[in-house]
């Protein structure tokens, strides 16, 4: 228990430290602000006076107005409300997918990189197979089996993200496992899983956090792509991809219908990417996850 708490506080400390350094940049702080807005919208959607489901067929495809800031869709529903609730769909899918991908991918990468024997070969060949399949095709095939639902989209996107985590975790372990402090833990009797999860993982965390952010943006895009192809979250649940899919048919009559959700989607992904890039640059400079060598 205590060891877990120690490892956790070690992880948390390094993450907070990085976040503090990050917010110094203008582009990243803007991205943070936008993502915060999206996240707040997703969390507090129920509190806002917005209704994404009620149809008003008489007022369909209205342009933006004071009563409906983003206009209405073909069924007379408020597009802004659907964008706000769509944020929930997107973020839940992204978060769930990242969690799934990390929970499966990181242990695979840790085991493969740590032992480096037949386990490495077997696991990494599996990962290669997964990587060789185009994400979108794989996700569609999985949804065809599981049926169309948010859970299916989430699992499909999550599984598609496993290779990213596995490869990063493996590379980190291979760099870290020969280091003295790992040898030290091994020499006083730390078992393999203890070393992998308590000793190596906290030090490999930074690149994995970057990967999580990158994957979150990929997941949002993939979820939107699935919805755009008509295999995402089933209607009437709002989803940005679904709005793009339907909205594109009304580009002549109501251009804002597709453009505004598309804009929000683009900005969200851009924000994730900006933060991911800044984080990568920062970590390359300050903290590669390998302890600095000083005083020699």
């Amino acid at each position: 228990m205590a060891a877990r708490r120690d490892a956790m506080s070690a992880m948390l400390g390094s993450t907070l430290q990085v976040l503090r350094r990050l917010s110094a940049r203008r582009s990243t702080s803007l991205s943070f602000a936008f993502l915060l807005l999206v996240a707040l919208a997703a969390v507090f959607a129920d509190v806002l006076p917005l209704d994404p489901l009620t149809q008003n067929l008489a007022d369909s495809l209205m342009p933006p107005s004071s009563s409906a800031w983003f206009g209405t869709d073909e069924l007379g529903r408020d597009i802004l409300a659907r964008v706000v609730y769509g944020a929930r769909t997107s973020l839940v899918t992204a978060f769930g997918a990242v969690v799934i991908a990390a929970l499966i991918g990181v242990p695979i990468g840790l085991v493969a990189g740590f032992f480096g024997d037949w386990r490495d070969s077997v696991l990494m060949r599996c990962i290669d197979v997964l990587l060789a399949l185009p994400n979108i095709l794989f996700a569609m095939a999985l949804i065809a089996v599981l049926g169309r639902s948010q859970a299916a989209a989430l699992v499909a996107v999550g599984i598609a993200g496993i290779p990213n985590f596995a490869r990063i975790a493996r590379a980190q372990v291979m760099a870290l496992r020969q280091l003295d402090f790992v040898t030290a833990v091994r020499s006083f009797g730390g078992g393999s899983s203890y070393i992998m999860f308590r000793t190596i993982l906290p030090n490999a965390l930074s690149p994995l956090v970057v990967q999580a952010i990158v994957l979150a943006s990929i997941a949002i895009l993939l979820e939107a792509a699935l919805a755009f192809l008509g295999v995402g979250v089933p209607p009437p649940t709002p989803s940005w991809g679904e709005m793009l899919r339907t909205g594109k048919s009304y580009l002549h009559e109501a251009p804002t219908y597709a453009v505004l959700p598309g804009l929000v989607l683009t900005l969200t992904i851009l924000s994730f990417d900006t933060i991911g890039r800044a984080l990568t640059a920062l970590l390359d400079r300050h903290d590669t996850g390998v302890p600095e060598r000083r005083g020699r």
Partner: peptide, 22 residues
Amino acid sequence: VQISQIVQASLGKVGIPIELDI
């Protein structure tokens, strides 16, 4: 897809919430 959602909404109004199997 659209007209099914219209019927789904009408059903909702009379207290029959159903899901679409697309």
